[in-house]
Amino acid sequence: MDDLHCIFLAANKVLTSKHGRLNVSGEQVQVKKRYFQVTDDLLSAHPDLLDPSLPSIDARLQAVASALPELAAAAAAKAIAEWGRPASDITHLVVSTSSGAQIPGIDVRVASLLGLRPTVRRTMLYFQGCTGGAAALRVAKDAAENNRGARVLAVCADVLSAMAFHAPGDGDDIEGAVAHAIFGDGAGAVVATIPGTERLVTGDVGSAGLGYNLAPVEVPVLVAGNIEEILAGAAAPLGGVVEEGGGWNSLFWVVHPGSPMILKSYEKVLGLEPGKLAASRRVLGEYGNMIGPTVIFVLDEVLRRRRKEGEDGGEGCKWGLLVGLGPGFTAEVMVLRARK
């Protein structure tokens, strides 16, 4: 398999706005800052975005269609530059987003902006939510392993703010306020679905944009009750490495940081040592929950920490797990092996 090259690339290219119209304590959600595609100019041109009682879906979809391809291409361009080979060498493109839907998909525009070959094989993934980054990596891995000489670029981008942003009203519930405080915009596996949880973590597109049901109390409990069994199934092909090497602490971790409570569930149930999820916490604090791209940011942070001599962020661990949780309620798990 040495002649196969699968590019799982992450890049932290994001857009920002100085708007801040919701007052939810950053200490509560442990998010210090986020980045938004929603700008003052956009809000001035479309004041309906601030009023949840007004229909605004057309304006929101237009904003997404304008910003999303450029954001995704900027992240991909940085990743390709770090790879060090021409963009024209890319044979497969996997693009994942939960922000809007277009025909043709944004993959066509991204391929054009990057200068990819017209024959590049494109795959679009829509509305995978917070498992979008992990799902894109899984599809990219399958493409690389089953196509000799494949060079696969996986891109995940979301500008959820344009779909969900609105000013708070008197009747706003706590779930909506928490969602606004956690979610931000950004551009960067065994599949397990837990039965009977379809109502948890859902999103509905309506006249006022995208509404999210996060079930912030139930989801961490659900994670605590199921995650070890899911991960054990994913790690089974390692042939006892987990048990012989010190349990779950023998691995490095690339975990989608859905919320502080979810991260605590991982630590409590799996008995993870302090610092094992430090990369996830840093990404949550610096960027918030960017939906699909978040786990790719965490992967980038884990790699950065591993390269930094003497820092405990998975240094020395040969095997790791990449985990994304999303709507459904679903889990995407991928076993990783460090090259060094």
Rank of each mutant, 00 (worst) to 15 (best):
D107A: 13
A236Q: 13
R339Y: 11
H19D: 12
G258V: 04
G203I: 01
S207G: 15
L322V: 07
G20V: 00
L214G: 01
R85Q: 14
G206C: 09
V108E: 07
K33Q: 15
L9Y: 13
A215E: 12
G316Q: 10
W248H: 05
E273D: 14
V283D: 05
S250N: 07
E243R: 13
V110D: 11
L54D: 11
I103D: 09
Q128A: 10
M334K: 05
L214H: 02
P69E: 00
G239P: 11
A215T: 10
G209W: 06
S53I: 10
L153N: 03
E309V: 14
L336G: 00
Q62M: 09
H92Q: 01
L22F: 14
G314F: 01
P195L: 03
L222I: 11
A215D: 14
P47H: 08
V155D: 01
A144Y: 03
G84Y: 08
P104W: 07
L71R: 05
E229V: 11
M124W: 12
A81H: 07
D185V: 08
N147A: 15
G326V: 00
E175D: 08
L61M: 15
D40I: 06
K18L: 13
P293Q: 02
A224S: 12
E244S: 15
W83T: 06
T39P: 12
L222N: 04
K18S: 15
G105D: 01
A136M: 07
S56Y: 00
I57K: 11
V159R: 01
S53V: 10
S96W: 04
P293S: 02
L160N: 14
Q28S: 14
L4E: 13
N213I: 11
K32P: 08
A73W: 03
T197V: 00
L263Y: 00
V95N: 04
G133M: 08
A192F: 02
F36I: 10
I227C: 06
C156K: 05
P220G: 08
G320I: 07
